[in-house]
Amino acid sequence: MTDTLSIKAQLQTCRSKEETFKTLVTLSKTLPRLTAEEKTEDNKIKGCESAVWLIIEESHGIRHFKADSDAKLMRGVLVAILSLVEGKTLTDIQQMDLKAELAELNLSSYLTSSRTNGVLAILGKIASN
């Protein structure tokens, strides 16, 4: 996966809704697909407009994430979200203002109220024990 600074820079340089959309679709291609076995009800995020699955694995206190969605745009948003939290400890993640970090990525025009609820559900699961 591309590093956080690069993703942040790519999204912040977008000057139009169309440019942001193209960037998100391009980013979506960098997210490895989950297997059918990984797309379980337990891994599914409730409250998302599209189907979204999130797997959190922890090794030596460091969190690693796998995610997928049936929607390209949401996969791009997942890449942006995961770039902020991948490889951090739960404590580090809980001390971050993830909503503010996401706001800096120019995604607001894509986060309709139903998508915002889904993103908040994703952020909630990422920051939970």
Rank of each mutant, 00 (worst) to 15 (best):
S28Y: 01
S28Q: 04
S28G: 11
S28P: 02
S28K: 04
K29E: 14
K29V: 05
K29M: 14
T30D: 15
T30F: 08
T30V: 10
T30K: 07
L31N: 03
L31D: 00
L31P: 02
L31V: 07
L31K: 01
L31W: 00
L31R: 02
P32Q: 07
P32D: 09
R33Y: 08
R33I: 11
R33V: 13
R33H: 14
L34D: 05
L34E: 06
L34M: 15
L34K: 05
L34C: 06
T35N: 06
T35Y: 08
T35F: 09
T35M: 06
T35V: 11
A36Y: 09
A36Q: 13
A36D: 12
E37M: 10
E37V: 12
E37D: 14
E37Q: 15
E38G: 13
E38V: 08
E38A: 14
E38K: 11
K39D: 12
K39Y: 06
K39S: 11
K39M: 14
T40W: 10
T40I: 12
T40K: 09
T40E: 03
T40P: 06
T40V: 09
T40H: 08
E41W: 00
E41N: 11
E41L: 07
E41K: 04
E41T: 13
E41A: 13
D42V: 13
N43L: 02
N43R: 06
N43A: 14
N43W: 08
N43Y: 09
K44R: 12
K44V: 12
K44M: 10
K44D: 06
K44S: 04
I45H: 01
I45A: 00
I45K: 00
I45N: 01
K46A: 13
K46G: 07
K46I: 09
G47K: 00
G47D: 03
G47W: 00
G47Q: 00
G47I: 01
G47L: 03
C48S: 11
C48D: 01
C48M: 05
C48G: 02
E49S: 11
E49R: 10
E49M: 14
E49F: 12
S50H: 10
S50T: 13
S50N: 14
S50E: 08
A51C: 07
A51K: 10
A51I: 01
A51P: 10
A51R: 06
V52Q: 00
V52Y: 05
V52C: 00
W53V: 03
W53S: 01
W53N: 00
W53C: 02
W53E: 03
W53P: 01
W53K: 01
W53T: 02
L54S: 02
L54T: 01
L54A: 03
I55M: 07
I55C: 05
I55N: 04
I55Y: 04
I55H: 07
I56T: 15
E57Q: 14
E57C: 10
E57F: 08
E58G: 08
E58L: 06
E58Y: 10
S59H: 15
S59D: 15
S59E: 15
S59V: 14
H60I: 09
H60F: 13
G61W: 08
G61V: 08
G61K: 03
G61P: 02
